[in-house]
Amino acid sequence: MSNFDIKVPTMAEMMAKGESPEILFWVGCAGSYDERAQRVTQAFAKILTHVGIKYAVLGTEESCTGDPAKRAGNEFLFQMQAMVAIETLNSYQVKKIVTACPHCFNTIKNEYPQLGGNYEVIHHTQLIANLIADGKLKTENNETFKGKRITFHDPCYLGRGNNVYEAPRLALEALDADLVEMKRCKQNGLCCGAGGAQMFKEPEKGIKDINIERIDDVKESKAAIVAVGCPFCMTMMSDGVKQLENNANTTVLDIAEITAMANNL
């Protein structure tokens, strides 16, 4: 892949030009700062640019949705974050939001309306699945994934939490790949171990880490690629895969990265 050389428009810039985007890309903290997740953000920005969707990001005006604070019991901090975010979003008259983070997705979609933030919120895998269905995204490069064994790890906040199981799978079905399910999938999917603010603390004493338990499912599926749809799952699964004996043979990729690669982006 080439360097990232796309001009990413911000809401402020668009506003200055008197324009408004079709959709706001809510990047999220992991997507903004985490090195691995930044590559997912870039891949998704490439897809948006490639299909010609008029989008914008908040850039430095974006802030944490408050999800980890809320899950850790700090409702004050959550609502402070939420109220400020809603004020920003409303000031730009945002109608539609796409995000590559299921935690941001859930918070903005389900927990903001009561606080005055009403938007149509979709997860990036849903947008990708729609673009494929509409023929706007074709699989240009069939070779990269042809016959590759791919499995999808359901993020709790997308799957069980919000009943989105099909979109990420539809995105993978567009490839000429060998899709397999892990024994614990969809409604019975096993958490990667990061949710509920676990990402930001040491796990409690136990016999093993949750991502290691999950990697046993990956191993059993014999998948070469673990597809994810969440930056936290990305971290946990990538760490987990390192524990596998032949870890060089297993890659963890986000649906956005897979789609970008399949379209030579």
């Binding site: 080439s2 360097n3 050389d5 990413v8 870039q42 990001v57």
Partner: peptide, 11 residues
Amino acid sequence: DRLNWANNLPN
């Protein structure tokens, strides 16, 4: 630094 990801980061 929130938008640094958009500034020509090498992959």
